[in-house]
Design a protein around this nucleic acid. Structure first.
Lengths: 192, 192
DNA sequence: GACTTAATAAAATGTTTGTTTTATTATTAA
DNA sequence: TTAATAATAAAACAAACATTTTATTAAGTC
């Protein structure tokens, strides 16, 4: 019938995630991706359709590889423990050596020409995280881990704001070292 | 002697601030700047030296125009009131219609090819804000506005992380509306 | 082994980029 | 008025960009 592919889609995606995550959509060139993935230009357009669509596939892959596992505790066992686990993972991840922030949120800073479909993905992730936080906070409140007077919705936004702050904090040597302490304070402030 | 300039340096800088703030260093083209400022290519290179140096001049101008006024209260009257004023201004600013985040922090997201001098400016601002926060928090503690047991340094990082979160929060319609609420919560959490 | 199909390699395309160069214009001192 | 100086306007430059096209190669079916 026809010639067999020399590349493996998942391997290619994994490598593309690294490059796109480090340099962003506009900051990554197709030539760079060709170099990093090993496949040639024609095959890349054949497989992914174009730069933007390639990036969208990369966002999806990054979500499955990195974000889904982090959010799992809040999915399976909503409550204060799940939130603590999530924040701990986030903090730990943001402290790692070559941290490049959040591949989704990175699209919100510095550029105003981000394609609509990309912004939609960013928004989807934000909404999902907010809902998970709110659900876990509500459960925590019912369990008595959080004072009855507080509003889970408002509290979820509060935590969400910190999380977004962490994605920037982790990018400067100055702030990196402060992350564990900040996460600790946030967790404690939930109980007040 | 020679021909007189047809442009005013400050006016040009003001307009360049808008463009660079909205699209970032890499996302702004010299042609775009020529269009927005009115002066031609040659004059631009004559006056500013090149894209990167132009951007550095823009950072300085943005600091003088926007950041210095916001930080003034913490400079002149360190204390809880100054912090509240600063956070209020920040929150208000981040809620405005065409908010483009922090022109300094925007350099930390999405790209890894930011010139060294730019990163230095970003770091300088971060350090300054941290010091101002720490000083105000220490004063607030001595005035009895903040419990004696808390560490002003750690607290300053906590507030700093939150502020960085705000610069991303203000960029999505979903989170914009939550800003006044989260700022309120932060202010209250300082007193616990 | 010839034919078909699709995956490659490599060159080419047309646009945009930051920057430089050449020509022209306006201003003042002599 | 002329000469000198520097600000403009406009063209030119090489490099990088995303994408398309043309040749070439490998694989399975008849």
């Amino acid at each position: 019938m026809s010639r067999t592919k020399e590349y493996d889609r998942e391997t290619v995606l994994r490598r593309a995630v690294q490059v796109f995550w480090a340099h962003g959509l506009a900051g990554t060139s197709m030539a760079q991706l060709v170099r990093a993935t090993g496949l040639n230009t024609a095959s890349m357009y054949q497989e992914f359709g174009g730069k933007e669509q390639f990036y969208l596939a990369v966002l999806e892959a990054a979500y499955q590889m990195v974000y889904a596992p982090m959010l799992e505790p809040m999915h399976k066992q909503p409550g204060l423990v799940a939130i603590k686990l999530y924040l701990g993972k986030m903090g730990e991840y943001a402290t790692c050596k070559d941290y490049c922030g959040c591949i989704f949120l990175n699209n919100l800073a510095g550029r105003n020409d981000v394609p609509e479909p990309v912004l939609r993905q960013v928004d989807d992730l934000c909404r999902q995280i907010h809902q998970l936080l709110e659900r876990s906070l509500t459960a925590a409140q019912q369990a008595g881990d959080i004072p009855a007077g507080r509003d889970p919705k408002a509290l979820a936004s509060y935590v969400g704001c910190f999380i977004q702050g962490l994605t920037l904090f982790g990018r400067t040597a100055r702030h990196k070292s402060q992350i564990p302490g900040v996460v600790d304070q946030l967790v404690k402030s939930l109980a007040h």
